[in-house]
Simulated assay, not measured.
Amino acid sequence: MINADSSTDAGSGDAHLGNLLEQVVRGEPGWQTDTGATAFLEFDTGWIAVWGDRERGGLLHREDGPAAIDFRAGESVTFQFREHGVLHRATGPAIVHYGADGTIAHEEWWHEGEFVTGTGMAA
Rank of each mutant, 00 (worst) to 15 (best):
W31D: 12
P66G: 00
D44Q: 13
T8D: 10
D14P: 02
G18V: 04
E63V: 09
V24D: 05
G18S: 00
E114F: 14
E108D: 09
T45C: 03
E83K: 12
V86P: 09
D64F: 03
Y98K: 05
Q32Y: 07
H88L: 01
G99A: 12
T35D: 08
V96S: 09
L21H: 14
W51M: 10
G30Y: 06
V50N: 11
R62N: 07
H106F: 15
L87N: 07
L60Y: 11
A94T: 06
S7M: 10
F115R: 04
F81V: 08
I95W: 04
G92Y: 00
G30P: 07
P66F: 04
E107Q: 14
M1R: 00
E108L: 01
N3H: 09
E28R: 07
W51I: 07
A49E: 01
I69K: 03
D53M: 06
F115D: 01
G120K: 11
D101R: 11
H106S: 04
F43K: 10
I69E: 02
V86C: 06
E114M: 14
R82L: 13
A10E: 13
L59Q: 12
Y98E: 00
R62G: 02
T35W: 12
R89C: 05
H97C: 02
R56P: 08
G120N: 11
D101I: 05
G92W: 02
V50G: 13
V86E: 10
D44L: 11
A37W: 01
